[in-house]
């Protein structure tokens, strides 16, 4: 189904927001102002955005340690996210979660996750909720090629199928689990794994927003209609290291530069919509300017924002204790 102009602009805006967010976090992390470590989603934007364009309020996603893109695509507040990454009191999680645990349940975002393979069982639970309460909602687990080998992921495929849950598993295969290539670490094929569990499996070019959106639309509709789970295997690219500070010595000479030049999902999208006459360049440039200004503000505000008060150490462990 063709995206209309508004949806195309929205898709572009979201991808650009993720990219700008990640590029700025990359730059700012190098200054030492951001505590801990971060895993950047730059290069993979078409997946999060292509899938989440199909989702509504009442739908859930679970993410990974590389979660900023999923958060933005599902509607989390960008400024709140930036403050969280800086460990500020005004962050989405009050500065107590950080990059790996950004969550906003009010947006259906069940959290980035520090545990590889943590998300799929949670999504089975969210899907069980929507099914039990008959809300019509669906739940999506984003996992990397690394998590695709975790028992939790494979068990979740089985459980989702056995319980006919409205669940979608999106395997974002950027070719590397940390430094280990998926060519080495993944036996068989992702979509044939779906076959083995009796659920539809899609192989899709994760750099192609339109293609991502289309397979996700099918999978989401199936889930909403009671048709059970699906699996989407998206091949895509990671522009930065596993974490910031990763020297990426395991990658080939010029590999990233070539990907940025030839397989950047945002540039491919821009080329597609302008050449097809769907959107004009000036329109897209205006989005770029708005996004840049938003991220500038987010960073400035985050830097100026106060850290959590000392007493916050002891709060929020329990609802009551």
């Amino acid at each position: 189904m063709q995206l209309n102009r508004d949806e195309l602009v929205q898709a572009y805006r979201q991808m650009r927001t993720i990219r700008e967010f990640e590029e700025r976090v990359h730059t700012e992390f190098a200054t030492g102002d951001i505590p801990g470590f971060v895993h950047l989603y730059a290069g993979e934007e078409a997946s999060a955005v292509g899938v989440c364009l199909n989702l509504k309020d009442g739908d859930y996603i679970a993410s990974t340690h590389r979660g900023h893109g999923h958060c933005i695509a599902k509607g989390c507040d960008v400024k709140g996210m930036m403050q969280e990454i800086y460990g500020r009191a005004g962050g989405l999680c009050g500065g107590k979660g950080g990059s790996m645990h950004i969550a906003d349940l009010s947006q259906g975002m069940m959290g980035a996750n520090g545990i590889v393979g943590g998300g799929p069982p949670l999504i089975c639970g969210a899907a069980l909720t929507t099914k039990t309460l008959k809300t019509g909602g669906v739940a999506v687990a984003f996992v990397g090629d690394g998590a695709s080998n975790q028992g939790t992921t494979l068990e979740s495929y089985n459980l989702a199928k056995v319980w006919k849950l409205p669940a979608i598993f999106v395997v974002e295969d950027n070719g590397y689990a940390e430094s280990t290539s998926s060519a080495y670490a993944v036996a068989g094929s992702q979509s044939k794994r779906a076959d083995a569990f009796g659920m539809p499996g899609y192989e899709v070019d994760g750099n192609d927003l339109v293609a991502m959106h289309e397979v996700a639309r099918e999978a989401v509709e199936r889930a909403r209609d009671g048709g059970g789970p699906s699996l989407i295997h998206a091949r895509l690219n990671r522009f930065y290291g596993h974490f910031e500070g990763d020297a990426m010595t395991y990658r080939g000479d010029g590999e990233v530069e070539k990907l940025r030049a030839e397989a950047d999902c945002i540039q491919l999208f821009r080329k597609h919509v302008t050449e097809a006459g769907l959107l004009d360049a000036a329109q897209l440039d205006a989005v770029d300017a708005e996004v840049t200004s938003l991220i500038d503000e987010a960073v400035d505000e985050a830097k100026a924002a106060p850290p959590p008060a000392a007493e916050e150490l002891l709060t929020d462990v329990y609802v009551s204790y």
Partner: peptide, 23 residues
């Protein structure tokens, strides 16, 4: 009353996810 497969990782995680979303 849900009989589960023998899959503690999946269903205990599902219980956590279901709890966080309204059950």
């Amino acid at each position: 009353v849900l009989d589960t497969p023998l899959t503690e990782s999946a269903y205990v995680g599902a219980a956590a996810g279901a709890a966080a979303t309204g059950l």
